[in-house]
Simulated scan of single mutants.
Amino acid sequence: MGNDENCEALAHRQVWLYSAFAAVSGAFFLALLSSGSSLNESILLMFSTILFSVSLTTNSILVYHGMAYSSKPLEMARQTSTSYVFEVQLVAQFSFILAMLFLVWHFSFIAFFVALVAGIFSFYKIYEGMAHSDQTEL
């Protein structure tokens, strides 16, 4: 697969990922409205709501950015590698992950703890594998 095809595939996956994060963040607000829950009842639910609002905004902006550059995947890859887009991506991804963790914690500390351990373990294994593959390529 050539560089253009790799960039196009990456751009396509990013638009889908950020669309999904934005959709789940929006669905959270619809569920919150229909449940009639008060944010004053739970600090965890309040933190989750704040983080979902950040997630909804930043992921929606990243979807728009991806759609604007969808016909220019190499330009999008160049844009994505710049620090300011990368920083927005980090905010979008981590606000979503943290919002989900706070929401899970609101319902069950044990489920939150298991999810947190699974997430830390997964990140460790992925980055350990990436570091190992980088060393073997040298």
Rank of each mutant, 00 (worst) to 15 (best):
M1P: 13
M1W: 14
N3V: 08
D4V: 09
D4S: 06
E5G: 03
E8D: 14
A11Q: 13
Q14S: 08
Q14A: 09
W16K: 05
W16Q: 07
L17Y: 14
L17T: 11
L17K: 03
Y18A: 00
S19Q: 04
F21C: 03
A22G: 05
A22D: 02
A23H: 01
V24G: 02
G26K: 00
A27N: 07
F29I: 00
L30D: 03
L32S: 00
L33T: 04
G36T: 07
G36N: 10
L39V: 08
N40W: 11
S42M: 07
I43R: 13
L44I: 05
F47K: 12
S48L: 13
S48M: 13
T49S: 15
I50E: 10
I50A: 15
L51K: 03
L51V: 06
V54T: 07
S55W: 00
L56Q: 00
T57F: 13
T58I: 01
T58K: 00
N59Y: 02
N59P: 02
S60M: 03
S60Y: 02
S60Q: 02
I61C: 05
L62R: 01
H65S: 06
A68T: 09
Y69F: 15
S71V: 09
K72P: 03
E75G: 10
T80Q: 12
T80G: 07
T82Y: 14
V85P: 03
F86V: 05
V91H: 02
A92I: 02
A92N: 00
F94Y: 15
F94L: 12
I97S: 04
L98G: 07
A99Y: 00
M100G: 13
L103S: 06
V104Q: 03
W105Y: 11
F107N: 11
S108D: 12
S108K: 09
F109M: 06
F109I: 05
I110F: 15
V114I: 15
V114D: 06
A115Q: 04
A115I: 03
L116C: 05
L116K: 01
V117G: 02
V117A: 14
V117S: 04
V117T: 10
A118E: 04
A118H: 02
I120W: 04
F121M: 10
I126A: 14
I126E: 13
Y127M: 08
M130D: 06
M130W: 13
A131W: 10
A131Y: 15
Q135L: 14
E137G: 10
